[in-house]
Amino acid sequence: NAIRLAGDMSHMASFFVLLFKINKSKSVAGISLKTQELYVLVFCTRYVDIFWNHLSLYNSLMKVIFIALSVMIVYVMRRGVPQRSTYNPELDSFPHHWLVLPCVLLGVAINQDPTSPFEMAWAFSIYLEAVAIMPQLHMVQKHGEAENLTSHYIFLLGLYRVFYLVNWVYRYMTEDGYWQAIVWVSGAVQAVLYLDFFYNYVKSKQKD
């Protein structure tokens, strides 16, 4: 449906905005490497089914694109010259292990098929995605204010989440028996994390 497509497009746009920013400014200052590495982990654990689930060309292609773009971002941040010298590890200080560990435990404990390692990995990726933005938001707070393109990037990620939430309401109403508790609760948590950022983003845009 169109709402979900809008969500996927804003999600993909967020990758391109970030890649554009780090290529054009030659700097990754203010970007959390931890958040970007968590996203690589999120996509690699969620899309292992790329090898056996062929739902549509769109679905498979987008999975490849999301993995490739997230890996590319981490690669530029770690290896890019001069980008790698502009990274601020002292500001990227969120204790991310405390995000991963509970998500592993939750993924093993709460999933749709306790006999399937794939379902555990899949649930883990849903839980981790919900909180993966936290190191980035933490960094923005420490910095005081995010650069324009960085804030557009975070805004697009939040927008993607909002579109998905609306899409789930739409699917619940139009598809008989469509019900995804794990995804909905995690998605709602994820959206809540953006509220404060959204508020400040809109406020600063009004000032401009």
């Binding site: 999600h11 549509s56 679905n59 999975k63 749709q112 098929d113 899949w122 998905y164 469509y178 995804q180």
Partner: peptide, 10 residues
């Protein structure tokens, strides 16, 4: 199947 309905999303 029903449990896989979610996997059509990204």
């Amino acid at each position: 199947g029903e449990t896989d309905a979610k996997k059509d999303e990204l």
